[in-house]
């Protein structure tokens, strides 16, 4: 797998000719599995209630709230008919997805405050248990990817 096919390395700006590339290469297996994980949560074969476009829109939203414009733009490209949800002031109401959008925002950004009621709110909105797990995996993976990218940028010396 080349660097340009790996979202983490592309977003962090780690080209093959950079000094960090050799450090990252030691953990090349981890970078490869991280990309497979992105495929599994963004573009799974079994989508449940969340199409690839909707997943991409939610991913762009999570990246946007994490102030990662690079990742937000990357995911927004695949958001299709759900592009409106990328806007951080969108509630999901227009798409009948208010409970889903509220949950995604909270799990991504107020993780420590999540309680039983957050799961109940999704269930009451008609989201089935397998879909609740799918939604958590999507947001949880993004939390990981965003933080690996942000850490690599710091290693590289961005923001100094």
């Amino acid at each position: 797998m080349s660097i340009s096919e790996q979202t983490i390395l592309r977003a962090a700006g780690i080209g093959a000719d950079t000094g960090l590339a050799s450090v990252v290469a030691v953990r090349g297996n981890i970078m490869g599995m991280s990309q497979k994980a992105e495929d599994a949560v963004l573009r799974p074969k079994e989508t449940g209630a969340f199409s690839h476009a909707l997943r991409a829109a939610l991913a762009a939203r999570v990246a946007g709230r994490a102030k990662d414009q690079e990742l937000a733009d990357y995911y927004a490209e695949a958001a299709g008919e759900y592009a409106d949800l990328v806007r951080l002031d969108a509630t999901g109401g227009a798409q009948g997805l208010e409970a889903v959008v509220t949950f995604v925002d909270r799990v991504a950004n107020q993780t420590r405050d999540i309680a039983q009621e957050d799961i109940k709110a999704l269930q009451q909105a008609g989201v089935c248990d397998p879909d609740i797990v799918r939604l958590c995996e999507l947001v949880a993976f993004l939390a990981y990817q965003i933080r690996v990218v942000s850490g690599l940028r710091l290693m590289k010396g961005d923001g100094q």
């Binding site: 991504a108 799961i119 958590c136 850490g151």
Partner: peptide, 13 residues
């Protein structure tokens, strides 16, 4: 970062 992922499963679900 990995625990940013794991926590959002274990603590949420």
């Amino acid at each position: 970062a990995l625990f940013g992922w794991a926590n959002r499963l274990m603590h949420v679900l």
